[in-house]
Computed example of a mutant assay.
Amino acid sequence: MPVQADTQNTPPTTEDARRPAAERRRQTLDRLATERDIWLATSHPEHGPHQAPFWFSWDGRAVWVCTGAASATVRNVREERRVHLSLPDTADVVMLQGEADCYADQDVPEEAADRFTAKFGWDPRREEGSFVYIRITPAVIRAWRDEPELRGRVIMRDGTWL
């Protein structure tokens, strides 16, 4: 019996299947609202680049992650606020560039911490040890599927949706 291709989750590969900008934006926002994991890349002037996966929540304007206060990620963000984020799917790429701000677990806005807790069932504010919430406000977002969508992949520039 011949195997049929899974066309429901396969990204389009022809120019005719290129998504309009509004659809790319909507699908990107849907993914930011529902996906669980994101890669966060930071850099430090003495220690160089560092990349790590995190659980994240999206508040409609910014990405929130949480990590131990002594982590390399927190150390780097305190030295260099510019960061890079990417969702893990390489066939349906979403990459964000922005600036990060750190909030100690006792100083994080309650709404942000509650959203994080509701999504993951874990509340770092109730853990022993110190945690830091990091808010990343995107300035640039790129989204594309395969080569036909490389043109027009920037869907946010200077914090404004295109």
Score class of each variant (00 low, 15 high):
Arg31Ile: 00
Gly98Gln: 07
Met95Trp: 07
Pro88Tyr: 05
Glu79Pro: 03
Pro148Leu: 08
Tyr103Arg: 03
Pro148Ser: 07
Trp55His: 14
Gln27Gly: 01
Thr10Pro: 05
Asp101Val: 13
Val65Phe: 11
Arg151Asp: 12
Glu15Cys: 04
Val154Gln: 14
Trp58Asp: 03
Thr7Lys: 07
Ala70Arg: 14
Asp92Trp: 13
Thr160Val: 13
Cys66Leu: 09
Gln27Thr: 13
Phe116Ser: 01
Tyr133Arg: 10
Arg142Phe: 08
Met95Asp: 09
Asp146Trp: 09
Arg115Ala: 15
Thr73Gly: 06
Asp59Val: 06
Gln51Cys: 15
Asp37Trp: 15
Arg36Ser: 12
Met156Ala: 10
Gln51Ser: 14
His84Arg: 15
Asp92Phe: 04
Arg82Val: 05
Val93Leu: 10
Arg81Cys: 03
Pro2Tyr: 05
Glu23Thr: 12
Thr28His: 08
Leu150Asn: 04
Trp55Leu: 13
Ala52Ile: 14
Ser86Met: 10
Ser71His: 06
Leu85Trp: 01
Ser43Ala: 15
Cys66Gln: 10
Val108Pro: 03
Ser86Lys: 01
Thr117Pro: 01
His44Glu: 07
Ala22Trp: 00
Trp161Ile: 06
Gln97Glu: 15
Ser57Phe: 04
His47Thr: 12
Ala22Ser: 12
Asp6Tyr: 02
Arg26Ala: 15
Pro20Met: 08
Glu80Trp: 01
Thr117Asp: 02
Ala62Gly: 08
Leu32Glu: 10
Leu40Phe: 02
Gly98Ile: 04
Cys66Thr: 11
Asn9Asp: 08
Thr42Phe: 05
Arg61Met: 04
Ala21Arg: 12
Thr13Pro: 07
Val74Ala: 03
Pro88Thr: 10
Pro49Asp: 14
Ala139Glu: 15
Pro53Gln: 12
Pro12Val: 04
Val94Gly: 10
Ser130Trp: 00
Arg157Tyr: 08
Ser57Glu: 07
Thr7Pro: 00
Arg24His: 02
Ala62Leu: 02
Gly152Ser: 09
Val132Cys: 14
Pro45Gln: 09
Val108Ala: 11
Thr137Arg: 15
Gln51Ile: 15
Arg135Ala: 14
Pro12Met: 02
Gly98Pro: 06
